[in-house]
Simulated scan of single mutants.
Amino acid sequence: MAAGLALTAGVAYLTWQNEGLAYQVMSLRLPLVLAQLALVFVLSMFAQRLSSAVAGLLFIAYAALTGLTFSALLFAYSPSAVISAFLTTAGTFAAMSVAGFVIKRDLSAMGRFFLFAVLGLFVAMIVNMFVASSALTLGISIVGVLLFAGLTAYDTQMLRNLALSGISGETAERAAINGALALYLDFINMFLFILRLFGIGGSSND
């Protein structure tokens, strides 16, 4: 997961530094986003059918594609907003991951709640694309941060329980990659919502 985040950050920074590449990425933003969604779908739905090597390569490809699309954030937000959002996300993620690892209460029952909460958040985001409400944008961002903070604790506990179950070999390797993807997505989504809160009016072109 850490390697995936490092790859995403590196690709985003290098793309931002290369003006020609950055414009190409912007012109291909929709196909790149669709490719990201396709990779997540394949990794999520066919994880048990893929070898650990193939799953690992797909995860690396997804992290690199995310870096390409995330390069646009460095043009849309000021560097201080991006840095502040990243540090806040890192601290929140670390705290919630530790909480999920050490907490004794079983969080598995929360899985369905988180699923419907994510779907509800997605619907709210689609609605806000049409109504463009600043109040709704703020509410969605706050709920998004809280939701993915909770998902970080949930996913961490699920991975801890999986590790304690004694699985090994190819199954363990696939589980590790799927776990890395889950935590990676938690971090990325939390970062995006926090950045939206930090970066109001923080365009780097101002």
Results as ranks from 00 to 15, higher is better:
residue 69 T to E: 01
residue 173 E to W: 05
residue 145 V to R: 02
residue 132 A to S: 15
residue 150 G to H: 09
residue 33 V to L: 00
residue 159 L to G: 14
residue 39 L to P: 00
residue 198 F to I: 06
residue 147 L to W: 01
residue 110 M to W: 14
residue 7 L to H: 07
residue 154 Y to P: 10
residue 7 L to G: 04
residue 183 L to P: 02
residue 109 A to W: 09
residue 12 A to R: 01
residue 184 Y to D: 11
residue 26 M to Y: 11
residue 51 S to E: 12
residue 53 A to R: 15
residue 102 V to H: 11
residue 81 A to I: 12
residue 72 A to T: 11
residue 99 A to Y: 13
residue 50 L to C: 08
residue 189 N to S: 12
residue 67 G to R: 03
residue 162 L to M: 12
residue 146 L to D: 02
residue 54 V to L: 15
residue 169 G to M: 12
residue 5 L to G: 05
residue 8 T to K: 03
residue 47 A to L: 09
residue 20 G to L: 12
residue 144 G to E: 02
residue 61 A to M: 13
residue 61 A to L: 15
residue 178 N to Y: 03
residue 145 V to D: 01
residue 205 N to C: 02
residue 5 L to M: 12
residue 170 E to W: 06
residue 55 A to D: 06
residue 128 N to Y: 05
residue 173 E to F: 04
residue 16 W to R: 11
residue 14 L to H: 07
residue 92 T to D: 02
residue 152 T to R: 01
residue 32 L to P: 00
residue 71 S to A: 15
residue 67 G to M: 05
residue 120 G to K: 09
residue 27 S to H: 10
residue 20 G to P: 01
residue 64 A to N: 06
residue 104 K to M: 09
residue 128 N to M: 08
residue 13 Y to H: 11
residue 112 R to P: 00
residue 192 L to V: 11
residue 143 V to H: 02
residue 34 L to S: 00
residue 104 K to S: 14
residue 55 A to S: 15
residue 74 L to Y: 10
residue 179 G to M: 09
residue 14 L to Q: 11
residue 169 G to D: 14
residue 26 M to W: 09
residue 165 S to L: 04
residue 178 N to C: 07
residue 159 L to T: 01
residue 4 G to P: 02
residue 182 A to C: 05
residue 148 F to T: 01
residue 83 I to A: 10
residue 73 L to Y: 10
residue 164 L to E: 15
residue 25 V to N: 00
residue 164 L to Y: 09
residue 184 Y to T: 05
residue 180 A to W: 05
residue 3 A to C: 02
residue 79 P to T: 12
residue 171 T to C: 02
residue 172 A to W: 08
residue 148 F to A: 02
residue 111 G to S: 10
residue 166 G to F: 13
residue 156 T to D: 03
residue 2 A to S: 14
residue 74 L to H: 04
residue 179 G to W: 13
residue 95 A to N: 07
residue 127 V to M: 14
residue 82 V to Q: 03
